[in-house]
């Protein structure tokens, strides 16, 4: 779709430039005669092509229904969008906005939500146990 959109935009821009130039040339040479029909048509076609191209090459729209939007977040998870910070960490897409409640791991789950109550001792113990067991994946 990206190539198609760019092609439409390119053709539209060329036609628009040509139509504008033709208009200028026409008014410079025959100042008192009306604009020929082909120039007006070219202008309209170029605008049509440009509008189509812009719509076609637009980024996919976000769902406007809450359930669908939330469903998309769950289905796709957080994924990188090709941008990195200076430290080399990838910027991820939008995640679950309620992750801060920490209720997604079930009762007694080990989620990372609720940062204010982060149990540093428990997490350290978990890690030490894992190392003692040989550090399997």
């Amino acid at each position: 779709m990206a190539v198609f959109g760019t092609a439409l935009n390119g053709a539209g821009a060329v036609l628009l430039t040509h139509a504008v130039y033709s208009t200028h040339e026409h008014t410079a040479t025959f100042a008192s005669t009306p604009l020929p029909l082909d120039i007006s048509l070219e202008l309209l076609v170029s605008i049509l092509l440009l509008s189509l191209g812009i719509v076609v090459s637009f980024a996919p729209l976000k769902p406007i229904q809450y359930a669908q939007w939330a469903g998309q977040l769950s289905r796709e998870g957080r994924h990188g969008e090709g941008q990195y910070t200076r430290e080399g960490e990838e910027m991820l897409s939008e995640g679950d906005p309620y992750a801060f409640l920490g209720l997604d791991g079930g009762i007694g789950g080990k989620g990372e939500g609720r940062r204010g109550f982060w149990d540093v001792k428990g997490k350290r113990r978990e890690y030490e146990d894992w190392v003692r067991q040989g550090g399997k994946q």
Binding site: G111, E112, G135
Partner: peptide, 29 residues
């Protein structure tokens, strides 16, 4: 495995991920 990202850490961090996260320390520091 969920990949380790320090900017937006995953919602679950099992020990292997935690190790991968903390191994980024020398680079960042």
């Amino acid at each position: 495995m969920t990949h380790a990202n320090l900017l937006s850490p995953p919602s679950q961090i099992p020990p292997p991920t935690a190790l991968a996260l903390s191994q980024k320390a020398p680079l960042i520091l």
